[in-house]
Design a protein around this nucleic acid. Sequence first.
DNA 1: GTCTATACCCAGATAGAC
DNA 2: GTCTATCTGGGTATAGAC
Lengths: 187, 187
Amino acid sequence: MDTRDRLIESTRELLWERGYVGTSPKAIQERSGTGQGSMYHHFRGKPDLARAAIRRSADELRDRAEDAFAGPGTVVERIGTYLGRERDALKGCPVGRLTQDFGVMADPELRRPVEETFAWLIDRLTGLLAEGRASGELDPGLDPANMASALVAVVQGGYVLACAAGSATLYAQAVGGALGLLAGHVR
Amino acid sequence: MDTRDRLIESTRELLWERGYVGTSPKAIQERSGTGQGSMYHHFRGKPDLARAAIRRSADELRDRAEDAFAGPGTVVERIGTYLGRERDALKGCPVGRLTQDFGVMADPELRRPVEETFAWLIDRLTGLLAEGRASGELDPGLDPANMASALVAVVQGGYVLACAAGSATLYAQAVGGALGLLAGHVR
DNA sequence: GTCTATACCCAGATAGAC
DNA sequence: GTCTATCTGGGTATAGAC
C-alpha cells in the first residue's frame, strides 16, 4: 500500500470512529505514519482527503450489498442475507453515520456520495421487492418503495440502538423484527 | 428565561445542529447572548453544560413519547400516534444523533442519559405491545421486544434516510412501512 | 515525495477587576 | 453575576529546504 493509499485508509478509519469534525490532519498523519508534507503533497487539504475516503467507503458498502442482492436464492433470502450479514454494530455504519455529521452535510462534495449511496440502496431494494411481487413470491399488496425504506431504516436505526445500549444485541433484535415484517408478506 | 436557562437552551440547539464536537463555548455564548464570565460562572465547562442540555433534551423526548403512549385509543392507535407525530426529520433526532457523536459516547456522564432514554423507550413499547397481545388486540405470535426494537429503529433510521436524501419524505415512507408491519399483526 | 519551520486562528479555560 | 484580559494547546495550512 503506497502513501496515498495509507492516507485514505487511515482517514476512513478515523471518519468511522470519530466523524469528520472530530478528525484532524494531525491524527491522520499519525495513524498513517506519514508527515505533513506527504499529506499536503497528495491532497489539497482535509476536505479533499475526506472526499476520497468517503467515496471509497461508499463504494465498498455498495459492493458488499450488491454481493448479497445478486447472490443465489429467492428475493426474501437475498434480502435476509443482506440484513443478517455480520456487521460491526457498535461502530455504526461507516456511511450512515456521516449523515449526522455537520461538517459532511455542509459540504456538497462530501455529502453527495452519502446521498447517492442511500438513493441507490433504496432503489435497488425497491426493484428487488417489485421483482418478488411480480413473480408471485411476495404479497401483491406490498408497497416496494415503502418497504425498502423501512428495511434500510431498520438497519440504520439498529446501529443507533446498538450504540446507545453499548450492545450489538439491539441491532440483531431490530433486524429480527424487520425480517418478521418481510416474512408476513410471503405468499 | 434567566441566563442559566438561555445557556442550556442554546447548547441544546447547537448540539442538535452540530453535535458535541462541533459545538464550541464561543458559539454557545454568541447564540445565548452571554459572555464567557457568565458561562463559566454557571457551569464548570463545556461538558458540564452539555450534560444539562442533554438531560433536558432526553426528558423532553420522554415526556412527548409518554403523551402518545398514555393517550386514548387502542395500543396500535397509540403507537401510530407516536410514530406519525410530526417530526423535524431533516434535523435528525436530538437524542439519537448523539449516539453517533464520539465526544458524547466517550464521556460516561454525557452518554448515560442517551442510553437510559432508549432503554426506557424500548421497554415502554415492549410493555405496550405485550399489553395489546394479552388483551387479544395483537397476534399471540408477535414478539414484543423484537417489535419494539424494530419500531424505534425505523424512527431513528428514518431520520438518517431523510438527512441523507435531504427530504422528509423518506422518513414518512419508512414509518409507513413500519405501520404496515404492525397492522399485519392486528387480529 | 518528504521533511521541518513557521504562521494564524480558534478551542477551552483561568484570573481578577467591577 | 458579569466583564475583559490572558494563557496554553491544537487545528489547518503554507513555504521552502532536501
